[in-house]
Design a protein around this nucleic acid. Structure first.
Lengths: 164, 164
DNA sequence: GCCTATAGTTCTAAAATTGAACTGTCAAAT
DNA sequence: ATTTGACAGTTCAATTTTAGAACTATAGGC
């Protein structure tokens, strides 16, 4: 399958995967959220090959996740900064961190703790329903076709089954 | 980089990426949450090659995300069911769906709508602070080293910078 | 016997990734 | 004036992964 095909699927998950659904892109984003901005810094902290790093950064810029901003002239140099679209990826990253904390931590506990500046406490990121505020679980959710889904779409078949 | 190396990093995100950080695995999980259970069903709805599907399912079983359960004898056939560890990936999937809904939807709107059975309303999944319940944003979060992080770890350098 | 269904495995070709070296611009040091 | 080093990449051969297609195995039904 080609990456482009994913972008065109009538599925928001597939479209997101088309943008950030690979190992290096996700790791690059981790660095971005830890304030890394420059090519050399990404390269040395991730041990990614320069070739791939260059490719991935271009892709993230193309999708509007990062902005390539000059930070000096002569020689002209650029750094990569998260756009709002990029910052909006934060819940995805945090959801993955949370799952790793719960299911992949070793005996010594989680590698990083997170403090919420607003309330001052160490916290866990929790996903809730926007309407009632309850913690979300897969079994509590029922899926409906939305306006953006063609009747012929692949996912249609699933819908019937998920109506069980 | 090898996948195994990621598992061993002192970073919950890296460890999660080691398990689900590739395109096909994420798509397979989408199908799982839409109640797909069988090899042929995964294969025909995803158009993944049988070879890769087989490989990825094995990996998900190895990591305890799916359970391979016999559903008939003679010939013996199996289906793949999400474990609790697998069900716990739901927030990650939903966070990705949400981002796609916001940033990758076309003019016609989102492909799927989600109803929360508990409250009966169409909702969006929102990530909040477990302590104060406020919606989370990257800028509101401050990172600290946790017990599971070796002093020498790669992430240490970032920590200093993120303390700015 | 032959066809179909299901769940895989095997094989070759094509694509992506790795590793290492190389390019170009400029500032600072010798 | 020349060399060295920092930074942001690009290029290219070798290795690894993925795609695509064909093949295997077990059993029920015609």
């Amino acid at each position: 399958m080609k990456w482009g095909a994913l972008e065109d699927e009538a599925c928001s998950l597939a479209r997101t995967i088309a943008v950030i659904g690979d190992r290096w892109t996700l790791l690059i984003l981790r660095e971005c959220f830890l304030r890394t901005r420059r090519f050399e810094a990404f390269q040395s902290s991730l041990q990614i090959t320069r070739h791939l790093l260059s490719e991935r950064l271009k892709k993230l810029v193309r999708f509007g996740i990062l902005r390539r901003v000059p930070y000096q002239d002569s020689p002209k140099r650029y750094e990569y900064i998260l756009t709002q679209k990029g910052l909006d990826l934060y819940p995805i990253i945090m959801a993955m961190v949370r799952w790793g904390d719960i299911h992949m931590a070793d005996e010594r506990g989680r590698p990083l703790l997170h403090e919420h500046k607003k309330c001052g406490k160490l916290f866990d990121p929790v996903m809730v329903c926007s309407e009632c505020g309850e913690v979300l679980a897969a079994k509590e959710v029922h899926v409906h076709p939305g306006p953006g889904r063609p009747v012929s779409a692949l996912a249609t078949a699933h819908q019937h089954r998920s109506d069980e």
